[in-house]
Design a protein around this nucleic acid. Structure first.
Lengths: 138, 138
DNA sequence: AAAACACTCATACTAAAGTATGAAATATTA
DNA sequence: TAATATTTCATACTTTAGTATGAGTGTTTT
């Protein structure tokens, strides 16, 4: 957020400077007006593109960011969240157990608890709900 | 977020207008060129924004579009694809059967065939693979 | 028409997934 | 320190998922 403000502030300053420069060079110098106009057109075109890119980029980022507050709000523990991510990547309980170096029964308890907290009946539904809540990416 | 962006955009435009007005009053109207320059700057700025928006919009669309060719390439039938979508939305076989007005065993065969075609061991993995192949949306 | 395909369904089976309960060790926090 | 939450694991059980096989019914395609 602060970054965006900084970027915009800098842009405004740059714009002001550009305007001053353009009017200055136009009044004092004897350079062709058409060139100045062309340069200004190009510069502002580029500025427009850059600003828009930044804006859309940030929007995209926000859309794909995970909501850590929601994870806490739901009450998912660290381990449960890890298991949830592994489920979403398509692993079985046994595979998750191997990946996290624990027994399969441990994973089963985690899954069971995680399903209750997400209000899901199945792991596939848990994936869907977690995605809607922006708890996991994809 | 969008609000801030709008506010800043409005600020920039206001600044440009102000600058134009100030210079205009300073020179007391004997330089329409500055007005032209200002107008051109604004116009090209807007053009830049619009063009960029269109380009990025198309990119986004492409990213989120489903690859129908891939569905054919893999050899998924219409019904199998329907079942895949229902799986991705978190339904059980019985629920899918009810939704599509067929028996659960029918869904089981569809699922089994679909898993082979997607080279998946589980339905959760099928979701993941289908998403990577851009066969289903998020 | 015959072959190939898609869709349907059933049965029987194996393999996972998920529930319930209890329990123990370790952090974390009041 | 006591209380609480997390993580771990086990056993027993029910449910769902997935496989294999066979078969009937339509559609296309050859």
């Amino acid at each position: 957020m602060r970054k965006t403000i900084f970027i915009f502030a800098a842009l405004i300053i740059a714009l002001l400077a550009l305007f001053k420069l353009s009017t200055y060079s136009f009044l004092s110098g004897n350079s062709p007006i058409e060139t100045i106009i062309a340069v200004i057109a190009i510069v502002f075109f580029v500025i427009g593109v850059i600003i828009n890119k930044k804006v859309l980029h940030n929007e995209k980022k926000i859309v794909q960011e995970i909501d850590h507050k929601k994870i806490e709000e739901i009450g998912l523990s660290k381990r449960e969240y890890e298991v949830l991510c592994q489920i979403a990547s398509g692993l079985s309980n046994k595979e998750i157990a191997n990946a996290l170096f624990v027994s399969e029964s441990t994973i089963k308890t985690h899954v069971s608890n995680l399903l209750v907290k997400l209000d899901a009946k199945r792991r596939t539904q848990a994936i869907q709900i977690a995605k809607e809540l922006r708890i996991i990416v994809n």
